[in-house]
């Protein structure tokens, strides 16, 4: 067992994202935070990846040498990201098959530091009701404010929350769309800190664009949000796609940082849900059943 401030085995025994593989400078030591601990990582020219609890021998910015790491942490590279674990690593990470389709463009759209708990950020990602008010003119627009009935289930076999039949009116559903339309969504929460959103591609209606949110909990109330898109789109540049997604996240960030309390309250009576919040209700219950305590306000016994 590592000596860590975080004692919550539910969160310790998860894979956590640290960086998009594309964006790691080779041969140099990088440093970040995860679950209140300092973590270093690096990759060499051969593609050998390591992560370890930061120490004074290998400081950030110094040359990275995989052989010099005496106490490596578990690593996984999957879905374009470097993942590590500070507890018992699960055997598998959730599936994300679209990422591996050959005609997809996988665009990391930025990493955002947000002063909020991971749970609040996941909930915001799952929420349609705020589109007309926070993403005005882009993902929603008054007076089209109604959240129609949709379905939510917690898949026992895959241990994930899934919301289907979601529909919302969007004046500009994606970068490649020019006018308003009802857009279909599917949401997946396959990991306590990761969520994926599937929406019909404006260029090919038979396929879904995927937007993902992989959260790195630096502390209980501080996260780095790794965002990206996995799209069927041959019209827009990487830069345009990044700009679109960064605009959206930039609109959510001040809302997230003004949520109070910052940790996600799991008691059903802490806040007032409505039918539109069915996914969030299922998500909170799912976290509660897992016994998560890190970054949340658990239900009092």
């Amino acid at each position: 067992m590592l000596d860590l401030n975080c004692k919550d085995s539910v969160i310790l025994n998860q894979w956590h994202p640290l960086s998009s593989l594309e964006e790691i400078n080779k041969g140099v030591v990088h440093k970040t935070r995860l679950l209140d601990a300092s973590i270093s990582y690096g990759i060499d020219d051969e593609g050998t990846l390591s992560t370890w609890l930061s120490n004074d021998h290998l400081k950030a910015g110094q040359p990275y040498n995989a052989a010099a790491i005496t106490d490596p942490l578990p690593v996984k590279h999957a879905h374009g990201y470097l993942w590590t674990c500070l507890g018992e690593p699960p055997e598998t990470l959730f599936s994300f098959s679209e990422f591996y389709e050959s005609d997809r463009r996988n665009v990391p759209t930025g990493v955002f530091g947000v002063h909020v708990s991971a749970g609040r950020a996941v909930e915001n990602f799952l929420d349609m009701g705020h589109f007309p008010f926070v993403h005005t003119g882009i993902l929603g627009e008054e007076p089209h404010t109604e959240v129609k009935e949709y379905d939510v289930e917690v898949s026992e076999t895959r241990d994930e929350v899934v919301a289907t039949q979601c529909q919302f009116y969007q004046p500009q559903a994606a970068l490649a769309s020019k006018e308003g339309a009802m857009v279909d969504y599917i949401y997946r929460v396959p990991h306590v800190n990761c969520a994926l959103l599937y929406k019909s591609s404006p260029t090919d209606e038979s396929r879904n664009d995927v937007i993902y949110l992989f959260l790195q909990p630096m502390g209980q109330e501080q996260i780095r949000a790794h965002t990206g898109m996995c799209v069927v789109d041959d019209m827009n540049s990487h830069e345009d796609i990044r700009y679109f997604q960064q605009t959206i996240f930039g609109q959510d960030k001040p809302i997230l940082e003004n949520q109070y309390p910052k940790r996600l309250p799991l008691d059903p009576r802490a806040e007032t849900p409505i039918r539109a919040d069915k996914t969030a209700i299922a998500f909170r219950r799912w976290l509660s059943r897992k016994g998560l305590t890190y970054g949340v306000i658990p239900v009092e016994a």
Binding site: G129, T145, E146, V147
Partner: peptide, 21 residues
């Protein structure tokens, strides 16, 4: 600012939830 819920002067009672018009 988040979901456009409206609360009345004096009572703070909610008068409108745009998601369920």
């Amino acid at each position: 600012l988040y979901h456009g819920w409206r609360y009345a002067n004096r009572t703070a009672g909610c008068t409108y939830i745009p998601a369920h018009p």
